[in-house]
Simulated scan of single mutants.
Amino acid sequence: MTGIIPTVDQIEALHRKLAPSDAAYDLIHTHCVIIAQITRQLIHRRNALFMRRCTLPADAPERTGEPAPGAFAVPATDGVTGGTVPPRYLDAGQAVLGALLHDIGTYRVLKNDGSNGEPLTFDGPHYVQHGLIGYDLLLNEGYDESIAQYARNHTGVGLTREAVVRQGLPLPPDDYVPVNLEQEVVMVADKYHSKSVPPKFLTADAYAHKAARFGEDNKEQWLDLVRTYGEPDVPALAEEYHMRLVD
């Protein structure tokens, strides 16, 4: 580790430095804060399961990975239900920092930044580049590779080289997928909230419908991630932030 591991205050300062308008800061920074909150909740759940693994029955859904709606051997943690025992304890501190920075590149793919009083809009054809833009931006700021990768590796449910080529995406052919559990949980958390204008929360089922537009395999990959990480209490989050909910 040779680069900067930022503090929360440094991350907020970077958001303010890059935001071209108050509207852009409010939308993008708030989204990152929400994803950090969901990330913390999902990790708390999985770490609780890890600590309880020795006391769980062998056929408990948290051990087997088999879905058992409404029946959880371990009570909900921070509103998260379901999930399976992880192979190791997750680093919540690093993952939260990564979540606060994962969308830092979206400031550079705005079509209208809101400074003219009109609604914010993103440059649709180039939006998929925001992860790689954010990665390069963070490295140029001196941030450590381990932190910069959160920006690079969170798109969709794991953007592979094959998908980049098949879809003709404006990215260098490569794998843009999480390389550890902390990056994966940020990728998962990111699917529960959208920076649409106005912003909105999505349930796991709502994102499954969205994922299906890219094929049934994409949808099934998402549902496997939901079974692995459990489901946050999205309705409660929508109420907390006074945002609409798509279910």
Rank of each mutant, 00 (worst) to 15 (best):
H15K: 13
P172V: 14
L110P: 02
R166C: 00
E162V: 00
L18T: 01
K17Q: 15
D224H: 02
Y143Q: 11
P235Q: 13
V109H: 13
A23D: 05
D136C: 14
V197A: 01
H154Q: 11
S115R: 15
A148E: 02
P20G: 14
H126P: 01
T7M: 12
H29S: 07
V234P: 00
N153H: 11
F122Q: 12
E141T: 05
L171V: 08
M1H: 13
L139F: 05
D217K: 05
K17W: 11
A58F: 09
I38R: 09
G124K: 15
A211V: 00
Q129G: 08
K195Q: 06
T39Y: 09
V85T: 03
Y176P: 03
L169S: 04
H31Y: 13
E182L: 07
L169G: 03
D190E: 07
K200L: 10
Y135I: 03
T155R: 13
R244M: 12
V96F: 04
Y107D: 05
L171A: 04
R46H: 14
K219Q: 05
A208S: 09
Y25S: 03
Q94L: 14
V179M: 13
T106D: 07
V164K: 05
V80D: 04
D103R: 14
I43L: 11
R244K: 15
P87S: 14
D26T: 14
Q94H: 10
L202W: 03
V188D: 04
L42N: 11
A163G: 00
L237H: 02
H44F: 03
E182T: 06
Y89M: 15
A68C: 14
L97H: 12
L49D: 03
A58R: 13
Q94S: 14
L171F: 06
H126E: 14
L18A: 08
H15M: 10
G142K: 06
V186E: 01
V8P: 02
N140K: 15
Y25P: 04
D123G: 06
D144L: 12
A95C: 05
A236I: 05
T2W: 12
A73D: 07
R227Q: 10
H44T: 11
Y241H: 15
Y25D: 02
E184C: 06
L132V: 11
D9P: 01
A211H: 00
Q221K: 11
L27F: 10
V234H: 02
K210L: 02
V177G: 07
R227D: 00
A212F: 00
P6W: 13
Y150I: 04
K219E: 02
P75L: 11
V177M: 13
D59M: 11
D233Y: 04
I147C: 03
H154N: 08
Y25V: 05
V157A: 00
D78S: 06
M243H: 15
E162N: 02
G158W: 01
V165Y: 03
P232A: 13
G82C: 10
D190A: 12
I5M: 07
E239P: 00
